[in-house]
Design a protein around this nucleic acid. Structure first.
Length: 250
DNA sequence: AGGTCTGTTCAGCT
DNA sequence: TAGCTGAACAGACC
């Protein structure tokens, strides 16, 4: 599932394989993925330009061209492929073709990825792996939401999805249902350290599914640290697993 | 074949 | 205003 680590790998792929090449054609025919643009709008804006730099904050990517900015999001099942033959069944939801051959496609069996001109980043919090201790205390520690719900809030901090949230809370030893308001500063700082470590490991190892706890994250799975059977419930509207022994209720 | 689950975002509630 | 719910998408799985 694309979360911050997958988005970072996607950004690096674009940077390595798709910069500085003249765009000669754009497939923006999917009006859901490219909403609110009409077919041809993104094509008209980008054709003739080159991608110059690839950026990311949280799960949101954007690419500069010298002209318009192209925003990209992987949604729940999206990934980028370079120079692959077109996918069957319209699974390539958006694509750029480059002069002299070469193609960058946004491949997504579902249809929740996005491509949009001049993306609005104003409602996005600081990147989850970059947030300072002061920012983290302020943006995560205030209010009354369950801590997991707050970690998932992209305007609080950007980049944490369901799996990375579970892995982070497990590393920090914090029950996902606890209210952010009752976390002390040591717990908030520890949570930030766990988030940075979990994110770094996931980027290095190839994605959030490589997390220590994520591999046991299923009904009847066991805590990799103490062996207790993992608990399961809905928290913040999302399926949540945690260790009842290592992540004690507040 | 049909029902449930998956995850992210956003509109629309309380 | 903060927090919660459901809709949107479409495929995987039972």
């Amino acid at each position: 599932m694309p979360e911050l680590p997958e988005a970072e790998r996607a950004r690096a792929l674009i940077e390595a394989r798709a910069l500085d090449r003249t765009i000669v054609a754009v497939d923006d025919a999917d009006t859901y993925v490219c909403r609110p643009h009409a077919p041809g709008e993104i094509a008209a804006a980008l054709t003739g330009h080159k991608l110059t730099t690839a950026h990311r904050r949280g799960k949101t990517l954007w690419v500069e061209t010298g002209g318009p900015v192209l925003g990209l999001h992987l949604g729940m099942a999206g990934r980028f492929v370079v120079n692959s033959p077109p996918a069957p069944r319209g699974w390539d939801r958006f694509a750029l073709e480059f002069e002299g051959g070469g193609r960058l496609a946004l491949r997504d069996k579902r249809r929740l990825s996005r491509a949009v001109l001049d993306p609005d980043l104003s409602r996005l919090g600081p990147d989850a792996a970059e947030a300072t201790r002061a920012q983290f205390r302020e943006r995560i520690g205030r209010g009354s939401a369950p801590v997991k719900a707050r970690l998932l809030d992209q305007k609080a901090i950007a980049g944490v999805g369901n799996l990375l949230a579970d892995e982070t809370l497990w590393r920090a030893g914090i029950d996902p249902r606890r209210s952010v308001g009752e976390l002390d500063l040591d717990e908030l700082d520890g949570l930030r350290r766990s988030l940075r470590a979990a994110t770094r490991d996931a980027v290095r190892h190839g994605g959030v599914h490589t997390g220590k706890m994520i591999r046991e994250r299923r009904r009847g799975g066991h805590c990799p640290r103490c062996g207790a059977t993992l608990e399961r419930a809905t928290v913040g509207g999302r399926t949540t697993f945690w260790c009842p022994r290592d992540q004690p209720a507040g």
